[in-house]
Design a protein around this nucleic acid. Sequence first.
DNA 1: CGGATCGTTGATCAACTTCAACGGTCGTGG
DNA 2: CCACGACCGTTGAAGTTGATCAACGATCCG
Lengths: 191, 191
Amino acid sequence: MSKQLKEHIGKFTNIKENDLVQILKYFKNVSYGKKENLMVEGQICKYHFFVLKGCLRKFYINDHGVEQTTEFAIENWWITDHMAFERQRKTDFYIQAVEKTDLLMIDFKSQENLLNEYPQMERYFRFIYQRGFAALQMHLKHFSNFSKEEIYHMFAKVQPEFVKRVPQYLLASFLGFTPEYLSEIRAKKRS
Amino acid sequence: MSKQLKEHIGKFTNIKENDLVQILKYFKNVSYGKKENLMVEGQICKYHFFVLKGCLRKFYINDHGVEQTTEFAIENWWITDHMAFERQRKTDFYIQAVEKTDLLMIDFKSQENLLNEYPQMERYFRFIYQRGFAALQMHLKHFSNFSKEEIYHMFAKVQPEFVKRVPQYLLASFLGFTPEYLSEIRAKKRS
DNA sequence: CGGATCGTTGATCAACTTCAACGGTCGTGG
DNA sequence: CCACGACCGTTGAAGTTGATCAACGATCCG
């Protein structure tokens, strides 16, 4: 079942099959149903998650009591509250399944042991973070450069499956505006 | 002169002194004067920079022809256009010295060689990216949670030296609003 | 000393939010 | 398998936030 992570690691490193089999033992395979929480505000952020199949979202509750989505994770994405994970602190975030989701999880201690036992994995995680970082920087650039209307259209163009897959109010929350306004933008386009 | 990078690497790894001396040879030591460009739009993004002393900023020219600052780097920070650096593509960004700045630079090929020769450096860069990524995520969270006025006050509280160090119009550009509005916010507070 | 750059102020304007109300649809229990 | 309630998307009116434009004063640097 986790050929998937093996393949993903294989893309960035040339770790041997034998080692990969051992590496997989550090992970726990679990499933969550729609709207189930994997992580909630106030808990120590214990785990790092890798999505095998499905979709997760990370959000926090803002000052007006509204859920603000900051990140989605679909197949082959890693997700956690990195700040809290690295320091093993309490998190401000929730991570929730948008649909039924199968995933691998690893706790902080195990991840550290894994990196010590298999230092080649440093390279793998270096890539994961490097890409995540680069992607976020692009994201931030777009946010500052374009109006919310443009952001929606660009996103819809680049990630059409995504727009179909997640409910509209979550998309609005992720893109940083109200469901009403998103609805208006879509109406404008149709006419 | 580059005890500084050695110490920084030492914080995250336990690479031996001998190796560190060799590692430093991969870097070139240079200085730039105020307003000099280290990188300009349209060039291949060749280098990764480490600030020893001074201050750099990364910006792009937006659709209205206005410079939009997306990142500052001060002592012990790494900076580049990661997306373009990783793929050795053309960049959309400028990197410019805000004040006279001493730094170390490494080109992509050398960084790859360095990582191959000294795989322990994977760990170092894994940490650099991990922290950068986590910091950006926090930044993004703040941006979505607070009004621009609140963002300014929070930033001024957390990074007071910064507010004094960079001119106001750059700060406004970084925080994502107009110099006029920043001026208004400051006036409000004074009264 | 003089010009260019930077910060300030005020008026007007556009983008986006908030609030309230309504209709459709999805899924759950009877 | 139907009915009901909860949830979701839509619409429109009114209200805010922050941008834009123009003009002026201060300051920095050659």
